[in-house]
Design a protein around this nucleic acid. Structure first.
Lengths: 247, 247
DNA sequence: ATTATAGGTGTATATTTGACACTAAGTTAC
DNA sequence: GTAACTTAGTGTCAAATATACACCTATAAT
């Protein structure tokens, strides 16, 4: 494929809410703005960038993801467009834009995406638009730059809605996992306790989990069996719509 | 409120999928492009417009709706952003843009909304961006201008998903309606037959319908009782999430 | 008076949900 | 090495929900 010259579109950006799960808590990948000009405390932000005029919106989002995590072909879903006039109203945000944008006064509308990644596969690194990228506990985030906190809440709300209708959460899990870990993931996302036996009954009935012969080692309790995700069965189920699935 | 001078943003538009229900079929309000320059058959399109730089996205969508239907404060929900590079690839679309846009070559990303209106309340009329506006049967639409067919399908998919989780369909009904009409609306949206007795049991259990003393007149069968929508109960239910609702 | 049409109603069965308690297999602390 | 600790793993019963299904009623048209 021949690459055309890429030209930034100064009016439209993408922002990505990248979720991960560390076998205990739901995480989100945030960047820290380097703000030499101001001595304010640094504000965290969602990774994002202006789109190029020669790429589709989801290509832009994938580009941001790739640059930041090194990952391709990961679960990615559009949340929607955020374009309120006051989304760039905070003083610090304005000042920061002055330092990184050629057209800092432009009204920018952002298209938000959320994605689910296996933390173990990812390799967060600085990139053209981020001086540092780290995983944070979602529940501890109380404020973000611009309207990014709103976007994070919208992403979380959509993820919660999605995960009770189809088991997309497997995108957050390592290749092998125990049912206990999986349940913890659901509990972290939905922010509520689930009954162990009912959880197992329900998730196993879907027939998208294959038991392996391997067990946990080195844990100070009865070792749990490892399962793997059966993508084939998932796909055929996805067609029919996961009819009686939900937590 | 003081009105600022409104300036069109040439890169971002809103498009509205306006659904209605005529007590038999699901309808969508489409505009016909007047295309004097070409002798091609006219193509239908979703109503939409470039946004103004001084208005929020949903204000833009409401402006389009108001101009086209005369209605304010109607149910409106964002579907998402559509910005594929080839969304303005059809020859006729390009030619038409030449006639109505000052910057016809610009890459435009559109934010799509869908709304639910009572056909009886609406008064479709030509406006700055439409030479004619009429209701069409959703199921009969096979092609639209630009990527509007994709947007319509996305809107329908979102509406179907929404209506089985919360009874937003009341926005499509007249003030008084029969349970038969309501069931027909669900059947039209979901495109499947529902069992009459089960439907009534389910919808009445929600306690958001108040029976009136009035009945149908002039129908050649047993006249049905009219119901009205109880907004107060709906709102308190909406908070708790319509837990066991679905078709 | 007959016919055609949609309204209105109840029950029985199968399926799903939700609540609940003990034993098993490992590690750690003593 | 044994007691304490931790999470894994398992089944049942009751309540709620979903599904399937048939007949009489009130009106207009003929």
């Amino acid at each position: 494929m021949i690459k055309k010259k890429q030209q930034l579109n100064p009016y439209i950006s993408v922002d990505c809410v990248i979720f991960g799960f560390d076998s205990d808590r739901l995480k989100v990948l945030l960047i820290e703005r380097e703000d030499h000009s101001l001595n304010t405390e640094s504000t965290l932000a969602l990774p994002g960038d202006l789109i190029n005029n020669e790429e589709n919106l989801n290509e832009s989002a994938n580009r941001v993801l790739k640059e930041l995590t090194g990952l391709k072909n990961i679960y990615l879903k559009q949340i929607g467009a955020f374009g309120d006039l006051n989304r760039i109203s905070k003083k610090d945000d304005k000042a920061w834009l002055q330092t990184v944008r050629t057209n800092p006064e432009a009204r920018v509308i952002t298209i938000a995406y959320y994605s689910l990644v296996k933390i173990s596969d990812s390799n967060p690194k600085a990139s053209s638009f981020a001086t540092s990228a780290k995983w944070y506990n979602v529940e501890e985030i109380k404020a973000l730059a611009f309207d990014h906190y709103d976007i994070l809440r919208a992403a979380l709300s959509q993820l919660r809605n999605e995960i009770i209708h189809q088991p997309v959460g497997f995108n957050l899990m390592p290749k092998m996992f125990t049912l206990g870990q999986l349940q913890k993931m659901y509990e972290a996302i939905l922010n509520k306790k689930l009954d162990k036996r009912n959880f197992r009954r329900k998730i196993l009935k879907l027939n998208i989990l294959d038991a392996t012969q391997e067990k946990e080692t080195g844990v100070s309790h009865k070792p749990a069996q490892y399962f793997v995700f059966n993508k084939k069965n998932y796909n055929s189920l996805a067609d029919t719509g996961f009819n009686n699935f939900g937590f």
